[in-house]
Each structure stands twice: as C-alpha cells, then as structure tokens.
C-alpha cells in the first residue's frame, strides 16, 4: 500500500513516487498546461486565479507565490513539469539549482565545474 512501505533515503533527493504523484497531481497538471503560450499568458495575468482553476491547495499556491522550488517539490511537484513554471519566471535550471542549494548562481556553476575533478 502506498505510504506504508519503508522507503530508501537518498540525501537531498525526493523520488517522484506514488505519494508524490498523488499529492502533486493538480500542481503538475497546471505546470503541464504551460506548454501552451495562451495558458502561460493567462497565468501571468492572474496567477492566483489560474492556480484556483487547477485546484491547487494552499501549500502549493503559497509555494508558487514564493517561487520556492523546494516547497514546490515538497508539495508534490515533479521537476520535469516544474521546469515549465520556472521558465515563465525566466529561471533556468542553474537558477533553480542555486536556489535549492542556497548558493549564488556563480557558486552553483563553480560547484558543477568542480565535478570535472
């Protein structure tokens, strides 16, 4: 049964499993709608109304308002769909990487370069 199985912990990592998918469906569905330019424009005209239309809960709406990626993931968001929301705000994957790790973008880029060893 979902939610009762013991899960393997991987530090700093949320696996998009049944619990996340159930929790995040409305949020992810809204993000999926952003494939359409008309929907992106409608969101930008009135964010809260657009979130209500997709039935986001308060935690999800608050995370959208704050552009808080860790909170969006905690609320069930999957990064493949959240990336479409981030794109509306002009945030690329390095911006959201920096935000989630509490670094400046330059420090985040330096961390990536350091992986060259």
């Amino acid at each position: 049964m979902p939610g009762t199985r013991r899960k393997r912990e991987i530090p700093g990592t949320t696996v998009f499993d049944a619990d996340q998918a159930r929790k995040g469906y409305a949020l992810n569905k809204m993000c999926y709608s952003f494939n359409s330019a008309a929907n992106r424009a409608e969101f930008l005209r009135d964010e809260d109304a657009y979130c209500r239309k997709f039935g986001l809960n308060e935690a999800q709406r608050d995370a959208v308002r704050r552009r808080d990626v860790l909170a969006l993931i905690a609320a069930g968001g999957n990064i493949y769909y959240l990336a479409k929301l981030a794109g509306i705000f002009g945030l690329d994957v390095q911006d959201i990487g920096a935000q989630q790790t509490g670094m400046t973008k330059d420090a985040f880029k330096a961390k990536l370069l350091a992986a060259r060893g």
Binding site: P11, I73, L82, Q100
Partner: peptide, 14 residues
Amino acid sequence: HQLDGRRAGFINKA
C-alpha cells in the same frame, strides 16, 4: 545529473 532537491547539481564523473 540532478535538477531537483538539495542535492541539485550532483554529478558523478567516475
């Protein structure tokens, strides 16, 4: 690569 979470930016060259 990892885009999400506090481990964002994880790379394992080896």
